[in-house]
Structure formats: C-alpha cells, structure tokens
C-alpha cells in the first residue's frame, strides 16, 4: 500500500510534514550538494531581521546532556538578501515551500519584514519569531505576553496575505492565552516551541561557557516539553501547529502529530546528523505501516 505522508499546512500541500527548523539548516541551499531539497516537506529559512546582524560573540555553542545551548544571536545578512538572493537561489533548486522566519526589535520592524517577505514570490509561508532568547530588547519579549504577541500578529497580518505562523516561546506560565491571541489576530498557524533559556559554566575557568552567558537549550531532551506545549495549544486553538523541539526520528514525528502538529520541524538533529531530515522522511512509510497509518493527516491531534 502507498502511504500518504502529505499534509495540508494552512492551505499549502506539503509532500511530507518534515521541515528543517530555522537556524539549523544554514541559509538554506547548503545541503543541496548532498541531497535533493525537493524531498523536504518545507524549509524554514534562517531567521532574518531587517538589517544584517553579526550576532553574538563566540563561543556560541555549549554541549549539554541531551542537546546543546546556542547563543548565535540571529546572525543573518538581512531580509533584502533573503528575499533577493537566498530564496530565489533555493527556488531554482527545488519547488519545496519556503518559510521566511522573521525576527524584529519593534512591532513596526516585524511589520516591514513581513511586507518584504510578502512581496517575495519565492516565499510561501511567513513564520514570525517572537521567541528568540538570545537577543536583547526583542524577540522573546513579544512572545511572553498575550498583548505584545497580539500586537505583532496584528501588524504581521496587516502586512501579508500569505499563510502566517507565529513561533512561540515555551518560557511562559500559560501558552493558551498567547496562542489564542495570535489566532484572534488572524494568524494562520502557530509554531512551537523555540528554545528554553539555559546556561553552562566552565568550572575550571569559573566563567560561563557561552560568551553571551546564556543561550537557548534544544535537542532530544526538549521533546517531551515540546510535545506537551503542542498538545495544549492544539486543544485550545483551531489553527494548524508546526511542532518543534527535540524531534529526531520518524516515530517522534508521528508522536508530535498525534499531539496536534500538522507539520513537524526538525532542528538540533540536523546539527548532529546533516542527513537527519531525509533519513526521517525515508523512515516514515515503514513506521506508518507498522502503526497501521494509511494517511498521516488522519492522526493529527488524535490524542
């Protein structure tokens, strides 16, 4: 039997639910030298800001049990490079839907970036990141308060008619009012979760490992936390969810979908194994067969 791995994500048909997560897939075209990017469900591009950013000083990475901390700090060449160079370059390689991941330091900056992404024909979905823990005076501050999240969602909605996802932070006492606020402002979907803030200390040097002192924790240890957030938001909202956090196998993709995700982002797994996404995609049909799943869409949110 042919197993149907495709999903409808806010009106866009993905051939499978596997999406490399923003910030774990280079600028986007890098892996084309090693496998066909057309096999991916979609690609969440490296987070972009209005202006180019160098990001944080190094070291930016710290190993942890079950994952890593990163404090890259939104290094990116700016949205004009994304829309003018990177997105067209990837589009020339494959027809995979492209997700622009947008960060900002003010509501207006988010809005301007969304307008630019809206005008870029190669961008299919806009994911507004209000959950980056590694930059000051921006990012996560918008994702931890329902009214601030609503203000960004409202401005982004005004800027674009393309499918609009808001990427939320797990660093909140209750995700439901924030997710609902985004839905009420017209967001087409929710991505969650971003990283959890964390810290490591080099006990010999008596200093933080990261130059930024703190970073965002990601990796397999995050999976149960992410799954529960997805399940909570899926129960409270009517818009599709991209689940993200610690996924590194086809089984975990299916688990995340059962929790309520329509698509599933794979992040840190790419850093350990650059072939993680195609390997997960290859494994999906046999895992579906083992579990008696004919159509992947049938299991979304069944738990």
């Amino acid at each position: 039997m042919v197993r149907d791995t495709s999903v409808n994500l806010a009106g866009i048909r993905l051939k499978n639910p596997v999406v490399p997560a923003s910030g774990t897939f280079g600028l986007g075209p890098e892996m084309a030298a090693y496998y066909d990017l057309g096999r991916l469900g979609a690609i969440a591009l490296k987070g972009t800001t209005l202006e180019p950013r160098f990001g944080n000083p190094t070291p930016r990475i710290a190993e942890c049990t079950g994952g890593l901390l990163n404090a890259v700090g939104l290094q990116n060449p700016g949205i004009d490079v994304l829309t003018g160079e990177t997105a067209p370059k990837i589009r020339a390689l494959c027809d995979t839907p492209l997700i622009a991941n947008i960060s900002g330091f003010s509501v207006e900056e988010y809005g301007i970036c969304c307008e630019k992404a809206d005008r870029c024909p190669e961008i299919d979905i806009i994911e507004v990141n209000i959950s980056c823990p590694n930059v000051h005076n921006g990012g996560m501050a918008f994702g931890t308060d329902p009214e601030a999240a609503a203000a960004v969602a409202r401005r982004a909605r005004k800027a674009t008619g393309k499918p609009l996802f808001i990427k939320l932070s797990p660093n909140v006492s209750d995700i439901v009012p924030i997710a609902r606020a985004c839905e009420d402002e017209g967001a087409d979907g929710i991505t969650l979760i971003n990283t959890l803030p964390g810290m490591r200390i080099d006990i010999r040097r008596r200093k933080p490992v990261l130059a930024n002192r703190t970073g965002g924790f990601s990796g397999p240890a995050l999976f149960p936390v992410a799954l529960r957030f997805v399940n909570q938001a899926a129960s409270a909202c009517h818009i599709p969810i991209m689940g993200c956090g610690g996924v590194s196998s086809a089984e975990e993709v299916i688990e995340m979908m059962m929790a309520g995700a329509t698509a599933v982002q794979v992040g840190s797994a790419n850093l350990k194994n650059p072939f993680a996404c195609p390997e997960i995609i290859d494994a999906l049909p046999s895992v579906m067969e083992e579990l008696g799943i004919e159509k992947l869409e049938d299991i979304i949110g069944i738990v």
Binding site: T24, F54, N270
Partner: peptide
Amino acid sequence: ERMGCGTGLCFGCTVQTTAGP
C-alpha cells in the same frame, strides 16, 4: 572555534572577515 555542527548549518563558529561574517 567551538563548533556546533561543523557543516555550516548552525552559525555557531562565525568569525568576522574583511568580506563580512
């Protein structure tokens, strides 16, 4: 530099150059 992935995916080991990061 301390690296995350070693394959260009994570931007963990960036250095400033005369041509940019």
